[in-house]
Nucleic acid binder design. Sequence first.
RNA 1: GGGCCGGUAGCUCAGCCUGGAAGAGCGCUCGGUUGGCAUCCGAGAGGUCCCGGGUUCAAAUCCCGGCCGGUCCA
Length: 921
Amino acid sequence: MCVVSREDIFRVRMFKDRGYSRRLCGSCKAYYWSRVERPNCGDTPCTDYYFDEVPIRSPPLSPSEARERFLKFFQDRGHEVVDPYPVVARWREDIYLTIASIAVFQPHVTKMIVPPPANPLVIAQPCIRLEDLGSVGYTLGRHLTNFIMGGHHAFNYPDKYVYFTDETVELAVEFFTKYIGAPEEELSLKESWWEGGGNAGPCFEVSVGGLEVATLVFMMYDVADGRYIEMPLKIVDTGYGIERIAWLTQKTPTAFHAVYGDLVGKYHKVLGVKEPPESLLRAVFKRSGRLDLRDPEQFRLLKRSAGLELDMPKEEVSKYLDGAVMVYNALDHVKTALLMLSDGVVPSNSGEGYLARLVLRKVFRILSRLGVSVDTVLELFDLQTKAWRSLYPRLSSSEDYVHQVVELEYKRFQELIGRAPSIVKRYLSKGGPGLSLDEYVELYESHGLPPELVAEVLSKLGYPAQVPREFYAALASRRVRAPIKKAEAPVVPREFYEKVEGLPPTRRLFHEDPYMREFEARVVAVVGDYVVLDRTAFYPEGGGQKPDRGRIVSGDRVYEVVDVQKVGDVVIHKVRPPPYEIRVGQEVRGEVDWDVRYSHMRHHTATHVLLGVLRKIYGDHVWQAGAEKERVKGRLDVTHFKAPTAEELKLIEREVNRVINEARPVVFKEVPKYEAEKVYGFRLYQGGVPLEPVVRVVEVEGVDAEACYGTHLRNTAEVGGFKLINVEKIQDGVVRFEYVAGPQLVEYASKLEDEIRSAEKLVGGRLLEKLPRLLKEAEELKRALSQYREFYKSVLVNSIEGSKEVVSEGCAVSVVLSELPDEELVTRVLRDYTRERPEAIVVVASGDERRSRIEVSEGVEASARVDAVDLVDRLSRAIGGRGGGKREHAILVLERSLRDLDVSEIRRVVLDRVRELCSRR
RNA sequence: GGGCCGGUAGCUCAGCCUGGAAGAGCGCUCGGUUGGCAUCCGAGAGGUCCCGGGUUCAAAUCCCGGCCGGUCCA
């Protein structure tokens, strides 16, 4: 595991200068550095919290003051302040949420594709981590799902050194001792190892008075297949807990008091929960640092020991603390949900949308236990919006969206709760008394019913109910890690890929002039069916835009271009016939199929306009979730929480066409990545984040701006018109729009016309006139049919009556032949007949030229003596056929014409058997 | 992206395990009863058992594929 001499890394110059020594913690056996001898490493769980007793010179700081101080300290020491990124990590494929400040720079900076925005830099990054969702509250604030990570980062390139371990530790110590004013004797730096996001390195965990306040990571390795490969880039990756710093300076009994201030009191009031006395919180505070929630008993023990200390009855302690934990949860979760929603996450059943729903459901569960209304839920969100608006300005613009979504999600949650009794009942009737452990687990995993709720439902239904102790263990044991990535089928064969990769980048004429239809180029390589040119106007598939078609002409030879793809920066053209005659170095002419390309451009520009319009109408939570631009139509999937109404669709069409009529210019420009982000924000990255130092921004003036590498029109007027042809919700939280533009509108309309005309040909007249008449006619026919059926029923019943032969008391046999091949009718008549006549045994043969069917039906009494299946068996032996059934009803099918059946033989076989069974006693 | 659960009358669901006659309650229509409280009694209408394929003499039921909804997880 250990790849370098760790001690060398950790032995920074300051330790010697200022008299720090390396010591071994007697409790956790880790090495730590401090100026004075200590009983342990100074970090929980080896010690209790005691930072409330440590003298801190700094005045009490709110989180936002702590954030300012942190940024200023590092700014004053040569760090440039960088704006935080969103909490939703849209630029990353491997994580949904921003879990640390370094996540902002992965992978583009850490993989040395893009230089950092500044070096060194400092950032106060809001982060969300949901791993501890279940622990929040109990530890009085050691676990939070949202926090601000203050990070100062230095990126040391092989040819440019900034600073590393020595300076990092000096900065941290100076910050905490001089700036925050903690006594240096109370500082402890524990040696540790950090790993995450594919990188690893040694680190120091810095604590004051038992509270870990910062982690200083020296990122040095890439982790691949469990091996550590030294990175050319050495990164200082620090994480200062801004909330922890606020807590340290305020010394409140819980971090929630330090972070949320007077919101704590307000939440207690709104939720009708009594605040615990400070003495109780202080008693818990001491012990909470050691609390390990993996053992569910620990919180109970903690409550008991706190109660003993204060001489408070344990019921009272429980009441206070259980209530407070709920309030703390609500504070934390509401803020986390708020941050996610205001970043535009749409709750759904997968992806980051699920994480938002997870948080919302967790807080709803608590709130519904406290019996609050939707209005109260919204009030809780509003209180936090007000409190955090200055720190997160986007909270203001997302207020409407948050309201709509929270209300909708709360409604859905209540529907789920409402379904609970009927679902639980279904499981109860499945057999076995009560519910098994597996059934509890299934109720949770398949139906979202937490065990506590199930138990509640059970006891309301009068069943003994207790959540199985092993429930959470059983749940955890089912969690299997699934691979996150799926292997995509390569469009280009691998062997071509390798051959093409090393070639120089292809000059992209389609970017320089999207209207270029013909060009001259030189052949750079021929690989299999693929031709590589030094320059091309053929657009390779990408960004949802389909590849171009056209021709490559070499002398008098013409090759059809059937596919265009890109391999890195190289564009390859698949041609037919195979390019056996084409030689490297040869000059060729390219001709782009303009009809196809121009349609792609119209649909592509229309897509940008549509997205801009949708964001304007619905809000910034509308994000592109997928798109495709073909010749015949365009398709755009976006995130939104409900299917659009008919009126909304009309409005959308009108707005898009308005933008088209305004003939807005469409411009593209190359902008350095960080500058583009500053100017346009993250909405740029609708189609994903390009790993480039410079991004190509396509802007439809006043409507939309996106990083995009497709080909676009000069002007929205060229789109020529826009019509939605299909809109549907394709999954929870995603709506699909399909549309046509330009001449495709005519194609679409004439296709519709053709369909209508064919339909009119079929019905023989105008649809709107003819259809009502046809429907009425069908209705009349149906009525006539049922009258005929009614009539034939009585005919059949008469003939059954007529052929009746009483064998004994409670046994009367009828055997008849029905000429009408209406099996359903026969069955119904038989059923009605035998239901009223318990003694009846009725045999009806029906069918057509190819197949016949003998149906046997019996009344209750008759079936007690004669088994219909037995009769059918005997018949089958006598006349063939196969079949079976139940005691009171059976069927025999013969692959013979009804005409060939000998009714008298059937009658003989049946009567023989019935006589045998019925006259026996 | 994956696992699990579900899709049957307008609604809520039973039937599916173990293949053999499509059901209940509510709602609706009609008739009677009733001052009202989910009044009571009787009659009736209402079905692509999600779709497609397979197995079988026979599929709501078993098997395969798909669609839709729910839910948990990544």
